[in-house]
Each structure stands twice: as C-alpha cells, then as structure tokens.
Design a protein around this nucleic acid. Structure first.
Lengths: 202, 202, 202, 202
DNA sequence: AATGAATGAGATTTCATTCAT
DNA sequence: AATGAATGAAATCTCATTCAT
C-alpha cells in the first residue's frame, strides 16, 4: 500500500496548498476578485485539479473560511491582582490578534458573501464573535460571584465594553484594508475600562 | 423656460428610477452580481442612458449608497423636558431608518468591495459614517455648553453610546441578511442611554 | 432680409467651427478615434446640429480633408544662380511645410480611410502628391531646355530625388506622430542633390 | 511525449488559423472595423481562446503584421556573374511579395493606428522596416569589401535605391486599395539599379 | 489523478445617430 | 434651426468551469 499512501499524501498536499493559495487570494481580493485560475497557479496545480478537489469556487471559499477561522484562538484570562490592568491586557491582546490574524479581512469577505453563503456567515459570527463575546461574559459573571463587580446585567456590560472598542478600531478597519493594529491603544482601552468599572465595578 | 424644465424633470425621473433599480439589484445580487444592463432594463432606460447619468458602475453604486443614507440622519435634538427620552427617541428613529433603508445591507456591499475599490470604501466611510457620527458629537458638545452634560470627552462618549448600539443591532445584521429592524429596541436603548447619562449626564 | 442673412451667417460660422474642430480631432486621434460628440462640444454646437450640417461622420471627415488640403500650398521656384543651392532650398522648403502644415498627419488619416473612402484618397494623392511632383518635373523639363541638365527622363529623375528624401524623412514620420521637421536636413539634401546632378546634371 | 506534442500541434493550428482570419478581417475592415468575435468565429475558435493566444486585439494585429512580413525579406545576394541582374531580381522578388502578402495594405492600418497606438507603430517600424532596410545595407557593405562597389555611404545609397522604388510603387499603393503588384517592374528596377551602379558601382 | 487548452456566457462601456420639444 | 437627452447595437475582454488525452 506504499504507492497508494504516497498518492494520498501528494493529493493532501495539493489540497492544502490550494486552501492556502485560496485564502491568500480571497483575503487580498475578495470573493469575486479572486480568480480560480490565479489560485490554481499559486497552488502550483492545474485548474482542473482545483475543481477535482473543490466542486466550485463557492465551496472552495467555504472551505477556506472554515479552515481559516479554526486557526484563530484567544488566550485565557491571566491571574490578576489589579482588575483594571487585567481587563485592559485582555482587550489589548484581543485587539492585536484581531489584526495579526487577519480576522478583519476574513470578516470582510464573509460579510461580503452573506447573501450567497448565509449559513457560513452565521457560523462564523457564532464562532468568531458570539463565542468570544460569551467567554468575556463568563469571566465577568465569575468576577461578580467573586465580588469584584456589582451584580449587574453582564451581557449588557460586555456589549458596552466590546462595542466601544469595536466602534473605535474594528469598524474603521472593516472599511480600510490597510488598517493595522493600533500602536497606542492602551490609553483608549483604559478609558473604556475605567468607565466600565465606574458603572459596574464594586 | 418650459422646454428646459420639461427636460430636467424627465431627466430627474430617469435618474431617480436608475437609483431605485440600482439599489434593488445591488441589494439582491451584490456589487459584481448586479449587471448594469439589468439595472437599466428595470429602470426602463437604455444602458447608454445609465452611463450618461453615472459615469461608471462604481459611481452608480456610490450614488445608491449615498442616496440610501440621505434620510438616515440624526435629526437635531428637539427642545426637551426629559433628556433621556429625547435621546432614546432619536436613536430609535435612527435605528429603524437604518433597517428600513437597508443601509446595513448596502454597507455589506461596500465592505465587500474594499479590496476592489478601496478608495470608494474610505470615501463613503468618511462621508457617511464619520460625518454622521460627528453630528452626534456636535449635538453633545452643545448640550455640554447648555449645561445638560458634565464637561467630558464627547467623542469618546458618543463612541460608547453608538458602539454599544451597533454591537447589539448592527454587527449581527451585518452577518445576517434576514435581520430586520428590532421590534422592541427601546428597552435596550434606554439602558444604554441611562448608563451614558450616569457617566456623563449632569 | 436682414434676419435671414443673420441666420445664414450664424449657420456658416457653425459650419466652419465644426470643420475646424473636426480637423483638430481627426488629426489628433485618427478617424475612428475622433468622437462626434467631442467634435460637437469643441465646436460649441450640439451633436444634433453637427448632424444637420454633415450627414454622417464619414461626410464630415471628407469635408475636413478637402478643406484642409486646400490650405496647403507650395512656393514657386526662386530665381537662381547656383543650380544646386536652389534645388536644395526648394526641397528644404517642401520638407518644412510638410511638417508645419500637418501634411503628414493628414496623409496618415487619409491613408487610414483608403478602404472606406477610396475616392477621397485618390483625390488627395493627386492633389497633394502627384501635382506637387509634377511641378517639380516641369521645372526640370524647363531646366533641360535651358541646358542646365542633360536630356533625360525627368519623371524618373524627380522620382529618385523626391523618393530618397521621402524615404528618409516622410516615411518615418508617417509612423511617428511626434516627428517634427528635421533641424539639419541640409546636409542630407545636398547629398541627394549632388548625386542627382552627378547623374543628370550637365 | 505524445500528449504534449498532440496538444502543441492543435494549439499551433489554432494559432495559425487565428492569424489567418485576423489578417483577412483586418485587411477587409481596418483595425477598429475588425471585430475580435468575427475573427474568432472565422478561425473556428472561441473568443476566449483567441484571447488566450493573443493578449489583446492590438497584440493580435501586431502578430498579423509580423507574420505578413515574415516571408518578405531581402534574401542574401546569391553568387553572381552580373551584379545588376542579381540586384534587380532581388528587388523584384521583394516587390512582388510585398503585394502578394498585402504588406502595404497592412501598413496602411498600422499608419491608421498611429494616434491610437503610437508605440505599436514605432515598434513595427523599427522591427520590420528599419531592420529589413539594415539588411540591405549589410549586403552592400559586404559588396564594398569584396570590391564590387566603390567605398561610399552605403546607408545613403540604399535609401536612394529603396526610396526611388517606394516612391514609384509603394506610395501610390498606400493610397489605392486596388493597387496590385506591378506587372513589368523590371524596366523600372533596371533603371534604378543602373543609376545606383553609375553612382556607386565600381 | 492530473493537466493544458478550450469555451459559453456574459460584463462593462462606447458611439454614431435620432427624437421630442 | 437648434438642442439635450436618449438609444440600439456592438465591441473588447474575463472567468468559472469542462474536455480530451
């Protein structure tokens, strides 16, 4: 079975390299801007082969997106002494990763294909936005239990926290493909967190 | 001049019907999915006429977006007895129009075209989003002068206000083409405004 | 009849300005590159008016060409003491006028339209090329009679003289719209004339 | 490799038939009158295939012109007893091919496109006209070395030779699409060559 | 399984010319 | 007579997808 295995490994390599090339092109040019022929060329594969691996451009796109967001992870909350510092650190990290991992570009193209691929968009929203958001809510709930926060509607509070940050950094980046991670976000983040604590902190 | 006026009125009607047809098709099929020929047919106009009115498909699209935004403005704050009520009313109105005029769906398309038409996205962001936002800031600054608010960083405050609302209503709608105007947004809005006033109100 | 005359004069002015604008555009952009709408705009006239004056683009083109080459004239042979000097002077003049009067550009567009407007091309060839050429033959014939030249086939001789010059200056200019009158043609012309006289001079 | 060769041969056939159809249509309708779709249909090929073979209509046209020139070369001068006879034969051959391969008609189109495609015209002039001309100069230089000619400015001499011929046969053909290869050019050619040899022959 | 070549269908845009007033 | 607006028809080029080997 050595031959068969070899073949399978070659095929898997091609699969992976198509995904990689696809990701690059979709991120760079959007869905309709990315050309199947270009992706195939970049993956060092014929167009026909590309279509053997993925039944259509749409399917390749879905595969690329699912593959891409599997890679985006977020770190756990560090142990903390000063509550404010820790939250700022977490948010800062969240922000940096968002830019480094090309999350915004990924969001952009998924948003673009909402009418064509609605389920994909909903899945990604759950995975990348709601779930991350929920983690933050869980953290806050725990902090409330620990007595670090006043009892309050933690969902709402997190929305205020995250929403303000997104409004400032993510929303503009959605419209600007050259946007990079903000250099000095800490001042802003501290401001948000201060207000947040004024409202809900103990 | 009767002739001149007649011509202008005919021309304006065509202009408007192209815009309308354009909006419909862009919303239904996205930017590259919408065909100029189809739009022209729907508007009962030749393609050539369409291109006399709008120099390019991109310019038509931009006009469609601007047109959609035209009615979605923060109206100047009316004289008020209860500040909270008034702000809630304004934001509620803004939110409803946003959905009715399908602004979010159009923004999706703008975002989709960021890689292909970066300047367009930047222009529209400045022209429509930033400027509208600035109007809200101006209102708040005036309220500060009138003594309705504590002196504070009004930019930041508005970001918090708007960001929280967007986080709750606009972001999800960005990923869900079936999203409609929220039925009972007032509770949420009131919550935001209350917090906002707790932070910055007098 | 004052009014009627006034109208006619207005109309004639428009006619002339269309011709002028047409000439400019045809020379600059060639036949198919020149747009009727542009010509009309330049002539400060509506397209409809343009088409009232000239039934079609083709007809306008013909009118422009006939009008243009009516303006190209060539000076008579000056009195002479030294035969060689005089011929060089004539040829030099011929060359300069060729460039200054945009004769080459005119030739270019007529050549371009040979299949579409064959008669126009033949007419222009006669008018601008054969007739000028014949003038030179006449001169030479006279010089033969005066004994300045050996008796010879003057047609052939002139062909050799003019052909050599065209080969060097006009032919390349046909392919280069930026070609300008040669600065130092005299050396070359003198060389041609010397050889010519060696062959046919007394 | 059988497959590879098969593919190449199919591809080359298509290439050739596009060129052939292209030549026909360009000659019949001029550059802008010739439609890529028509050419493709005539060549029994899809438009897309045409554009795979030639990146643009302009490039196809350039290829057609180059192809037409391919056979119209001054062949190297054969060993000769009578120099005059040989040169006449070469020039005669050149002249006939020029008409048979419709080079002049194609040049008309190149000239027509000077305003729209200036670089193309310059390139083709250099590549086809100047270079061919240079080959003739090289031949003459060799003959000078062999002692068949007096030392002289061979560039100038060839210009005189070729220019005279062009003046007689090519210039008129440029303005007359019905011009055909001259039947009895030998008398004229002999006359030119005789004069040429009188000036520069040994 | 893989490929190079081919394609059908369509997209945007232009332009000479005509109409309604 | 003059015009601004409108248009039908066409042209170049692209692209996702499929064949033949």
């Amino acid at each position: 079975m050595g031959l068969e295995e070899y073949r399978r490994s070659v095929s898997e390599n091609k699969h992976a390299s198509i995904l990689k090339a696809g990701r690059k092109h979709f991120l760079a040019n959007g869905y309709s801007g990315a050309a199947a022929a270009e992706i195939a060329r970049e993956a060092d594969v014929s167009t026909a082969t590309l279509y053997k691996h993925f039944a259509s451009k749409e399917e390749l796109f879905a595969a690329v997106v699912r593959d891409a967001y599997r890679e985006v992870e977020f770190p756990p909350l560090p142990e903390h002494s000063n509550l404010s510092d820790v939250i700022v650190a977490v948010l800062s990290n969240y922000l940096v990763l968002n830019f480094e991992r090309e999350v915004t570009a990924l969001l952009r193209i998924v948003i673009a294909e909402v009418p064509a691929a609605p389920q994909l968009a909903l899945d990604l929203f759950d995975e990348l936005i709601t779930s991350r958001y929920q983690k933050m809510v869980d953290i806050v709930d725990q902090l409330i239990l620990q007595g670090d926060f006043k009892p309050h509607d933690s969902q709402f509070g997190v929305r205020l926290l995250i929403g303000t940050i997104k409004e400032n950094y993510i929303w503009p980046a959605l419209f600007n493909s050259n946007a990079t991670a903000p250099e000095n976000a800490d001042g802003f983040l501290r401001h948000v967190v201060t207000d947040y604590l004024r409202l809900y902190g103990k």
